[in-house]
Design a protein around this nucleic acid. Structure first.
Lengths: 118, 118
DNA sequence: CAGGATCCTATACGATACTG
DNA sequence: CAGTATCGTATAGGATCCTG
């Protein structure tokens, strides 16, 4: 009995740590919106993302894109255009976040309804 | 054609806004971990949550719990014990976040593997 | 035990201007 | 176009102490 309770405890600790691991990579005001943009549009240029996300500054977008690239969630490609354009897309690993993005989208819609209805 | 492209554009704008709506409520370092604790343990006292989440201070926990209560995601109950204890649990609305928490947990585990393996 | 009050710091973020 | 550099502010968050 006591032993099983301890097992649950252990299991929950692991789950809690896993969630925090996710949040280490995803927290902040802009990471999720950026990933969402790439999730919905697939390939997207710097200035496009800048327009997709309301309120973000180029400084922040630049910094966050770097972070996400370091964490292997997105891939950066310089296109041979004139002038040069840069394309971003999700990596295979980044794509595994699609489920979460979809859930957040659905939840956001429901949450807005809940807030408005009162 | 052009018209359909515009429709997609519109749809994506909505999705993007929905995601940001979610993040308005959930962003910050501690909200998701707190919800996770209540998600996995169901009913939980203040000091328990304080222990569940590594690194959180009582000041932050107190503040974030208030925020979540205002947003109707959790419910606060004062128990008639000596000394007084306070119990927190997810509301019906808060429970709708379980899917997201579970996904974040799974993703965190996979992400850790990815990071370690290189 | 469950917080509130106070003080303090780091950093996240914004605005603006500039460059290849 | 895709950033970088610089500067400034706000606020998120930590540490500590106090109270019913």
């Amino acid at each position: 009995m006591v032993c099983q309770a301890k097992d649950f405890q252990q299991e929950h600790k692991k789950e809690m740590r896993a969630v925090q691991d996710s949040m280490d990579v995803l927290s902040g005001k802009w990471k999720i919106p950026i990933i969402s943009s790439l999730c919905y549009y697939n390939k997207r240029r710097f200035s496009d993302i800048l327009n997709d996300i309301e309120g973000i500054s180029n400084r922040m977008l630049s910094k966050e894109l770097k972070d996400l690239e370091i964490n292997k969630l997105i891939k950066r490609t310089i296109l041979d255009t004139q002038p040069i354009t840069v394309q971003y897309e999700l990596t295979q690993h980044g794509i595994t976040l699609k489920t979460i993005i979809n859930n957040l989208t659905e939840w956001g819609i429901e949450h807005r309804k809940k807030i408005i209805e009162q």
